[in-house]
């Protein structure tokens, strides 16, 4: 009988990266590439992410796929607030990262003005490989996290 020893942090982070459920939330063109990532060719379920939750209460990750407009901004913020901690944000595509080609009255110049972003993915729209790379980058980030540093733990204390 082999014995496995590990730290609590490693075990928790392994669990978190192994089954990270994204919110079923698409805005614009990038959402089509997000769908392509989940479909047959790129198969996001390899990373335990095939289950798109339609409710923010049940999801860990919000992929902001597309341009966030001034009218949509309060909605995005409310969705983020409704998600349970720990939660992560990926800004997918140029528009969500910095406004992209739409430097105008209607578009928020980067979703980081509304919600804190963990990973930015460049591209207009990013290829599915880029999205997968962004998700793996997020996994790396989570693996480096410690329970002690988590925001919600501080809030509870």
């Amino acid at each position: 009988m082999g014995v496995v020893t590990t730290t609590l942090d490693t075990a928790v982070n392994w669990a978190r990266t192994g089954a990270m459920w994204p919110l079923l939330f698409g805005l614009a063109c990038c959402a089509i590439e997000m769908m392509a990532t989940q479909a047959s060719d790129y198969d996001l379920s390899r990373f335990g992410m095939e289950l798109n939750r339609a409710s923010p209460r049940q999801s860990d990750l919000i992929i902001v796929a597309g341009r966030v407009t001034r009218k949509m901004a309060p909605v995005v913020r409310q969705l983020y607030d409704q998600m349970a901690s720990p939660k992560w944000v990926i800004a997918m595509g140029d528009c969500a990262s910095c406004g992209g080609v739409y430097n105008n009255y209607a578009v928020v110049q980067g979703v980081d003005e509304i919600i804190p972003v963990d990973v930015y993915i460049a591209g207009c729209p990013p290829r599915p490989e880029q999205l997968i790379h962004g998700i793996l980058t997020l996994h790396e980030k989570i693996k480096g996290d410690s329970l002690r540093n988590a925001v919600y733990v501080k809030e509870l204390a």
């Binding site: 341009r67 407009t69 739409y102 105008n104 209607a106």
Partner: peptide, 9 residues
């Protein structure tokens, strides 16, 4: 909710 101002741009 997705009005992007493309025409104006």
């Amino acid at each position: 909710f997705l009005h992007t101002g493309i025409e104006k741009n």
